[in-house]
Design a protein around this nucleic acid. Structure first.
Length: 423
RNA sequence: GGAGAGGUGACCGAGUGGCUUAAGGUAACGGUUUGCUAAACCGUCGUAUCUCUUAUAGGGGUACCGGGGGUUCGAAUCCCCCCCUCUCCGCCA
């Protein structure tokens, strides 16, 4: 959410910002409602003052003076309830519009209409060539009895799968390595609830907007989080933290649930786009300081790169353009991993910087040394998401005989096994 | 699922109609004392919003004691509805 005072002072920035991000929001309408609301509220305040004064004087008045005073009072009350009625009508419009105003992107974000206009910042690693006919992860996984998509679909519908044997082991190895790495970097591990109230969804910026992407438990009015970002970022919502607590760096591993509505027919093959996966996610809750936020942003990007490098996966860093940014993001770096079967890079990570946007929505603040309450800044990034990353790992490390060499760093998590082979 | 208790400021916790923004305590900040640390003592210390002024500070108004409505000249305090939390019992991983 944006500070309404900033919108009042400089509406054009927010109009342009929304346009660049492809969001449709009526700033003029918002300002109009804001003006009306303020007029009514100011008048209401004056009435309250008058009422209070009058009320206090009443016990001191003589009998003859009491009657006119009471008459005046009931007159004021009538006007008061009329104003309240108007405010009650305007307030929801105002609140709705406020939740819709996007955070303008940072100047270093490239202008663009959609993901085709994202710009590549740099690459890491060599794209391998094979001197045999390489298989894709599905063929590999089926042959090695690691992946069973058919039965996943039988039991849970399309975009569902089983991992078994070394497939399950590899999946957990990747997650555990990522978790251990982040803990070594000083991030606090968290196990989190995933059934979230609407409030948490709104606070992180997923609502309004991503309702269609989200599984909802209608009976309980709870939402199945699509990422641990929701519980971890909202963890301190509504609180006033002490400045010395910041930055709070957390890492959580969780299952992620996504409906993938509107993606029908897209990426239907294999484990790329699925309804349920596991992810290690890093979150930083920091000070209200743009320079620090940028520093943290690079830090969380580096953390993920280190993990990708440890796995030996070639990747590139993409500066996501304005049109592909979410409502709240100031800037976003995606990491895209090389996936031989797609013959392209596929998104595996998304590092976002929000400044105050999320903190304002969830009323997450801290008290400075000067006793001021400021909204925190929030950031998050994937550390690793599996099984999507298994596509790269399996396909890149396959051998001519159909076996898969396990990356060094994952072997300790797989009983020091070096290869996954047919048995 | 059944029964009960409760929701007050960063935190704990008092407060059953006006003198309460709200006692007391903790934490924090400033000061006195002090070789240092600690302790003790004194002082300051809620949030939001509007407005004024000798305008990165101060003054004033208003609202806020879970949310919404009501009674009343006046409500944290009384009434109604809702939400949430906790405890006990039952069932159970």
């Amino acid at each position: 959410m944006i500070d309404i005072r900033q919108i009042r002072e400089n509406p054009q920035i927010f109009k342009d910002g929304a346009k660049a991000k492809n969001f449709d929001v009526d700033i003029d309408k918002l300002l109009e409602v804001d003006t009306q609301l303020r007029e009514n509220k100011n008048r209401l305040q004056d009435i309250a003052t008058e009422k209070n004064n009058l009320g206090k004087s009443i016990p001191k008045l003589g009998e003859s003076e009491k009657k006119p005073a009471l008459d005046k009072l009931s007159e004021l009350k009538q006007e008061e309830s009329a104003l309240n009625e108007t405010i009650k009508q305007l307030q929801p419009d105002f609140d709705t519009l406020m939740l819709e105003v996007p955070q303008p992107a940072s100047p270093e974000v490239p202008l663009g209409k959609d993901d085709t206009e994202n710009t590549e910042l740099r690459k890491w690693g060599e794209i391998p060539t094979f001197d045999f006919q390489p298989k894709d992860h599905v063929a590999l996984g089926m042959a090695l009895d690691m992946i069973d998509i058919e039965r996943g679909v039988k039991l849970a519908g399309t975009r569902n799968y089983f991992l078994k044997g070394d497939g399950a082991m590899l999946h957990w190895a990747v997650l555990r390595f990522a978790m251990d790495y982040m803990i070594k970097r000083g991030y606090t591990p968290m196990a989190v609830p995933l059934l979230m109230r609407d409030e948490a969804m709104r606070g992180t910026g997923y609502y309004p907007g991503s309702e269609e992407q989200t599984y909802r438990m209608e009976k309980d009015e709870l939402n199945l989080a699509g990422t641990a970002e929701v519980p971890v970022t909202a963890y301190h919502s509504g609180e006033i933290l002490k400045e010395e607590m910041l930055p709070i760096k957390s890492v959580a591993m969780s299952t992620c649930f996504r409906r993938e509505a509107g993606a029908a027919g897209k990426d239907t093959h294999g484990l790329y786009r699925i309804h349920q996966f596991d992810k290690v996610e890093q979150v930083i809750i920091g000070e209200n300081d743009e320079e620090k936020s940028k520093k943290y942003h690079l830090e969380i990007l580096e953390n993920s790169e280190a993990v990708m490098q440890a796995f030996g996966i070639p990747y590139r860093i993409v500066n996501v353009c304005t049109g592909d940014l979410g409502r709240g993001q100031v800037q976003k770096y995606d990491i895209e991993a090389w996936m031989p079967s797609r013959n392209s890079y596929g998104e595996t990570h998304s590092a976002s910087r929000f400044y105050e946007f999320q903190a304002r929505r969830m009323n997450l603040r801290y008290k400075t040394a000067k006793n001021k309450n400021l909204f925190c800044h929030t950031l998050n990034n994937t550390v690793i998401a599996s099984p999507r990353v298994l596509i790269s790992i399996m396909e890149l490390n396959q051998n001519a005989d159909g076996s898969i060499t396990i990356p060094q760093v994952l072997r300790p998590y797989m009983g020091n096994k070096q290869k996954i082979e047919k048995n």
